[in-house]
Amino acid sequence: MKRPKIRIGVTGLNAIDNPGPGVPVIRGLLEAKSFDAHIIGLAYESLEPGIYMHDLVNKTYQIPYPSAGTDQLIDRLEYIQEKEHLDVIIPNFDAELYSFIKLSPRLKKMGIHTFLPTMEQFDERLKVNLPEFGEKYGIHVPKSEVIYQVSDHKKHMEKLGWPVVVKGKYYDAGIAYNADQLTGYFNKISAKWGLPIILQEFAHGTEYNVTGLGDGHGNTISAVPMRKQYITDKGKAWGGIAITDEKLLNLTRKFIKETKWRGAFELELMKNKKGQFYLLEINPRIPAWVYLAVGVGQNIPEAYVNLAMGKEVDAFETFESGKMFVRYSWDMIVNLSDFEKISTLGEL
């Protein structure tokens, strides 16, 4: 049987040292058995490596930054849609999700399907709301407090203790061992991502991650836990191994069941000495290490697209253990004329 052709727009083509998930997502899509993927890249900057990977990406368009507002984004997507007739868009950046969730009804009218968390789910898992989230769904989370002025940290330090994790609303974090360092991180992070700043209890232990996919009705379609083996100075995994910890899988299923999570996600967890897992963060999107999930038999990008297209998708029951990923970098040779095209025309 001939596989249907599905035209998919993918963001996050920045396969750099702090990589976006776009390129691994595309690899998953191109390996899909249920459809034949035609990939359109959506890029913010002209040096995102994915733009130049012509064997993975058929064509790339520049899109405006989320801070330009949804009006400009929809204008640009309308232009792209006229030419490309996309069936699905997979947004892969935290900062752009708000815009895409907001626009999803309008995208649907244009014929573009998405499979994103609801605005409620998106808001509820925000870092500032994590303590309430943990309480509501019975999931352990580290203590945290939200501050608007650096001096406010004094009220909370007795409870949180040093060191403390200083986090931005969307991105960025630092570990402060004293008030001076805390002030430094506060200023640096708030200048870039605004207020408030979140102070989170530093959780000691081993870090674990889970990526997965919920169908929006409480069912787990996919869940693959991973333990980071090597972490870069940017805190990103450079190598990781798929693990079969039932406790982690149960926690993930519970998270999906309780929140009725819709779409892909990554859970960041810490296991303390007593073996308890603490949920540090919920990223409401596919993580950059998703190709490990593909590699062990759970093609999350493929299932994501099928769910977006409204198809019935069977849950993945198992995955192969004993596999790991090792990331590597690769220097491409690019013609200057390609750089010229994306830089001046915004398309390549």
Binding site: L336, F339, E340, K341, S343, T344, L345
Partner: peptide
């Protein structure tokens, strides 16, 4: 200099629009 407004200096490797 190209029609698209792309200006390239091969000596320094810098590009401009």
């Amino acid at each position: 200099v190209s029609d698209s407004g792309f200006v390239f200096n091969p000596v320094t490797g810098e590009s401009f629009t």
